[in-house]
Design a protein around this nucleic acid. Structure first.
Lengths: 218, 218
DNA sequence: TCAATTCTTGACCATGTGGTCAGCTTTGGC
DNA sequence: GCCAAAGCTGACCACATGGTCAAGAATTGA
């Protein structure tokens, strides 16, 4: 069995692929909206257009489904976190950082909210990731930021707070979308809005940290 | 009955006051952690040290309890949102804004997370507040910011995005506390940490918007 | 064609849910 | 001391939950 289907865990049959995709998409929405406990397999199954038993057939359990969603999101996250070095241009790096984080909120709002919900609940499934991989990533970036500050390329601000500032202000447009829409009176945020916000954030953060930006911005 | 206890809705007896306080505190924690659906009256009752029936005796229903918590949080919020005018000093107003928002994250982390959870879930109970009161508050502030920009007291940045920037970056330290602690390796954020972050945010935001701050900051 | 595998799903189960209620005890003003 | 109001709570209800399972349907490769 394992031999005949040795690649099943990587791609699986066409049917499996299609159904798992539908389940994952539906589950991401429902978990994001109601949290781990508040989400029900019944609702996920309905949104995926399948009977509940079928969801369990593919995913095994609610917990496994949830963990798989988190892992997919962390993989997206990791794909975004490319490496930098002290030789790079601070303005370019920070701009790219803000822009890619903003695109993550744009392209995967449900995933962003799922992540937020997990953290809000005390990160029971992500403790390890936060204290391990992500922490090291932050500290390596922080070291580079400090070197830039030493060279006078930017103000000597605390790099960790700076990273949190960028994360929070970009994540906001996914997590607090309901608030943003309610207050601005919009029905949805368009690409042009996101572009405008990206420029605003880039401008304020770069200027706020004493970095000169690479190209003139409004 | 109504006559004998005419003040009951405002303060109630000593017993009622004590028990309601315990229930509200426990409920705020549980709702914040698990969301509206994910929270259970059983768990709330246990954390309040009362039988479940007693919680329902005081609060009527899960929904009423939740709404009451949200209203309390909105009242705190409103108490913080004092008025400003175009004659005020931009640096002072923005500094105070950041500081008070930060203190809200500090003093009422569970309330902040409850609010975040509600918004994350699409703000089913707060639509009205967002599209009404809060929206007007934002727009009145925005008008003042614009006038400051016209007078050259700050850069002509979009005031609404600026308000969201301040909200998100301060709210972050309540909502994403688990992430902040995991990454920084701390057990908890102390008053000194919060003071440092407040100064960092004030510095970056004021400088980023071209406002001169009222007092020298590290 | 045919058998092995994968897929599908309704019935079912133990447990937990929000909520009701009746009957009890305690409290507080007179 | 009295008694009405307030407080208390275990038993109970209908329903939803995550999960199991067996039996059949569809698909697949040789």
């Amino acid at each position: 069995m394992a031999k005949a289907m040795q690649y099943s865990e990587q791609e699986g049959g066409a049917i499996r692929q299609r159904n798992e995709k539908a389940i994952m998409a539906a589950a991401e929405r429902v978990f994001a909206r109601h949290g781990y406990r508040g989400a029900s397999l019944q609702e996920i199954a309905e949104q995926a257009g399948l009977p509940k038993s079928n969801v369990l057939y593919y995913m095994g359990s609610k917990r496994k489904l949830y963990v798989r969603l988190l892992e997919r999101m962390m993989a997206r996250w990791n794909a975004m976190l490319d490496d930098i070095s002290a030789e790079d241009d601070p303005a370019e790096v920070l701009s790219a950082f803000i822009r890619s984080k903003m695109q993550m909120s744009r392209r995967h709002p449900e995933g962003s909210r799922l992540f937020a919900s997990e953290i809000l609940g005390g990160a029971p499934f992500l403790q390890e990731y936060l204290r391990g991989e992500l922490r090291e990533w932050v500290q390596s970036r922080a070291a580079v930021f400090r070197e830039w500050a030493d060279r006078g390329l930017m103000d000597p601000v605390d790099p960790v707070w700076l990273i949190f500032l960028i994360w929070s202000s970009t994540q906001h447009y996914a997590d607090f979308e309901a608030q943003v829409l309610g207050i601005t009176g919009r029905e949805a945020l368009g690409d042009d809005d996101l572009e405008e916000i990206t420029r605003f954030l880039t401008r304020v953060v770069l200027k706020g940290c004493g970095v000169r930006h690479p190209e003139p911005v409004t």
